[in-house]
Design a binder for these strands. Structure first.
Lengths: 209, 209
DNA sequence: CGCTTGTTGATATTCTATTCACAATACCAA
DNA sequence: TTGGTATTGTGAATAGAATATCAACAAGCG
């Protein structure tokens, strides 16, 4: 048995694995069965070495003549990054961004499903929005425990961010993806990923300058 | 004269500068005039050392007793990351994500403005959407040259991504912020930042697992 | 004055990520 | 069989970021 199944993978590698898989699905759809590191690298704007290194880290071996077997590779990536029984996600804040993510995501990944949405606008609550039941924010705790959700995507207004984050933590959430412009702090053991759109625009503006 | 004005700043530092500034605006609004590294660090979920090192890199010095002068710091960050005469941005794809970004952004930064939006849906084009004139995608080249735009935010469907990216490059755009799930490659000298929502969700799911 | 506290600025260290360089292998063509 | 080409796998070097550590300094206080 490989030593890699338990070892921590570098964060960047995990991100790339997710993208390799998506690209490989496309290749399968086009009828390809094998792929070389440089092909995959081209499609993702990386170097072949980087691709090979990533695949090495997850313990996958290709052949010098045929490259990598796409089907096997996709399967292995699934073993590594998917959770066996699947994971439930909620999305808090059904503004434009919340709806965008929902529609992006719905039906794309079979091991991950967005099971509920929340908002504080009564016009949106207690009905189906984008195929997902939308509840009022006061019901977060109930739904989280009933559906065994451990991941939440935060797309609420800046003003509401701290209050909602607290609710999520109280309800026992294990990971938060924060798309608001307000930085959060979470206790030890909770995973937090922050992504701020304004920051990324300003960064690009700096680079272009 | 400091040597830092020209030297390349680390990417992560640039991102944090953008966020420092936004937080500092809030502090000013609350009447604060000075701030210590540990205060700023707490607000951003960083260590004080990290804050001081960032400020060191941009050549700003505080005082041991009073910390940093917020007003001066904000001004210096502006000098570093803003472009003197301002920059114009367009947003291509006015789906939920495009509209979300537009409303997030409008009026927030005075040196950066979203001057136009594009879509291929005739229902949306040739009218004002979210305060911004929305044109049909065929008019990209005209508008870019007329308004001297050098940054584009891409929020179109996966299918349209490559074609639209090509149009942008042809029109002479200098920086692309790619929010589609399709990786792009750009020629030397063009800046590209990619951010893929599905990837970030899968990464979080891996961490939580 | 001398001692204590809290802060900055800077250097050194550790950790993470990427790239370089090349051995080993498989295939093909002559 | 042999030489040539294209590929993978990986140790070593390098680059990029985060963290630890500490001297120097300012202010308050006995």
């Amino acid at each position: 048995m490989s030593k890699n199944m338990q070892t921590e993978l570098p964060g960047k590698t995990v991100e790339r694995l997710s993208q390799y898989r998506r690209i490989l699905y496309n290749s399968i759809r086009e009828g390809k069965t094998n792929i070389y590191s440089h092909e995959l690298a081209n499609m993702m704007n990386l170097t072949p070495v980087q691709v090979r290194r990533d695949l090495m880290l997850i313990g996958y071996s290709g052949s010098q003549s045929k490259g990598y077997v796409i089907k096997d590779l996709v399967e292995l990536i699934g073993k590594i990054i998917d959770s066996e029984h699947g994971q439930n996600i909620i999305i808090v804040g059904m503004g434009n961004l919340g709806r965008a993510i929902t529609s992006y995501f719905s039906g794309k990944r079979d091991k991950l499903s967005i099971v509920a949405a929340f908002d504080n606008d009564l016009q949106k609550t207690d009905r189906i929005v984008g195929g997902i039941p939308c509840y009022h924010i006061t019901q977060i705790k109930d739904v989280i425990s009933k559906e065994t959700v451990n991941i939440a995507i935060l797309t609420v207004s800046p003003e509401a961010t701290h209050e909602v984050a607290k609710k999520l933590l109280d309800a026992g959430i294990k990971g938060i993806l924060n798309y608001t412009s307000v930085p959060l702090t979470v206790p030890e053991g909770i995973h937090l990923e922050e992504y701020d759109i304004v920051t990324s625009i300003e960064k690009l503006a700096y680079l272009v300058k």
